[in-house]
């Protein structure tokens, strides 16, 4: 089944600039006997926004968690700024994490803290910044994502899903990271709020000059925030190219996915597996 996928789906590689911010080579990850990642190869150039699309259970989140160091890959290499990140000790890993900002699917806000404390958390606890200074930065970042000062004194449970995502975004960009990760940034939001979040993501990435790696299965979001799109299927990147080429590819997997058709090679595989 995997061999068929490899043979039929030709990987279309875009010319990657020399300055590669993030690079994954042959990353594999299994859970017991289940192989989730079967050799991920991916390059994210400096300053670009790469979106990984793919169906549920194809390994998108696992790939992201491997990059963030939340999961340890079984094999392969993950390089940031040309430096290998696999097997880093705690101090180097901590230094590396300071380059990252992450927006989680459910926002993952600390529910025992006020909103401004959530945004300032990384600054105060991670970087030892004074609470008052961190609060000023938090309020500034909240303003940038369209949240006023009064919201700062509320708790996460008092906010709507869209507002929680904004807070999550403000927290992700609070420390001006070099690389931003977005895990399903628009999942569970209405189309208008989803578009607002997409706009904020674009704005934040541009203002910071950051490199972005997102995973989603929301095609509208992917088209909006991506410079480059990659498709993951059965734990491998089966297509990668500029967002403009997405509609002109002859890759039948990508074609089926972006048009959301029930019939096609992806569904056939799922049907056979079932």
């Amino acid at each position: 089944m995997t061999t068929t996928t490899d043979q039929t789906a030709k990987q279309e590689e875009k010319e990657i600039p020399e300055s590669c911010k993030l690079q994954l080579c042959g990353v594999k990850k299994s859970f017991n006997s289940k192989k989730v990642l079967r050799g991920i190869d991916l390059k994210v150039p400096q300053g670009q926004s790469l979106v990984v699309i793919g169906g549920s259970g194809t390994g998108k989140s696992v790939m992201l968690k491997c990059v963030l160091g939340l999961l340890h890959p079984d094999e392969g290499s993950i390089m940031v700024d040309g430096r290998e990140t696999m097997g880093l000790d705690a101090r180097d890993r901590n230094r590396l994490m300071k380059k990252f900002g992450m927006l989680f699917q459910g926002a993952a806000l600390f529910d025992s803290m006020k909103i401004w404390e959530n945004v300032a958390f990384g600054l105060v606890q991670g970087r030892g910044m004074d609470r008052n200074d961190a609060q000023a930065i938090a309020l500034e970042k909240m303003k940038a994502v369209g949240l006023d000062e009064q919201v700062g004194d509320l708790y996460p449970a008092e906010l709507s899903g869209g507002m929680q995502k904004r807070v999550g975004l403000a927290r992700a960009v609070a420390a001006n990271p070099e690389i931003l990760f977005f895990d399903e940034p628009t999942t569970g939001l209405d189309p208008i709020m989803a578009d607002v979040i997409n706009e904020l993501i674009i704005k934040s990435v541009k203002e910071l000059g950051a490199t972005a790696l997102s995973i989603t299965h929301d095609m509208a979001s992917a088209r909006k925030i991506a410079d480059v799109i990659a498709m993951i299927h059965e734990g491998r990147i089966i297509w990668c190219g500029p967002v403009g080429e997405l509609d002109h590819t002859d890759n039948e997997y990508v074609d089926q996915f972006i048009h959301g058709r029930a019939e096609g090679p992806i569904t056939d595989i799922i049907g056979k597996a079932a």
């Binding site: 963030l68 994490m97 900002g101 992450m102 993952a108 529910d111 606890q125 927290r171």
Partner: peptide, 20 residues
């Protein structure tokens, strides 16, 4: 905190959950 990814979020914010 674990199942709502708050512990993962802590790690991405350079805070060690064992210490915190």
């Amino acid at each position: 905190m674990r199942v709502t990814e708050q512990i993962d979020a802590m790690v991405t914010l350079s805070v060690n959950p064992f210490k915190y």
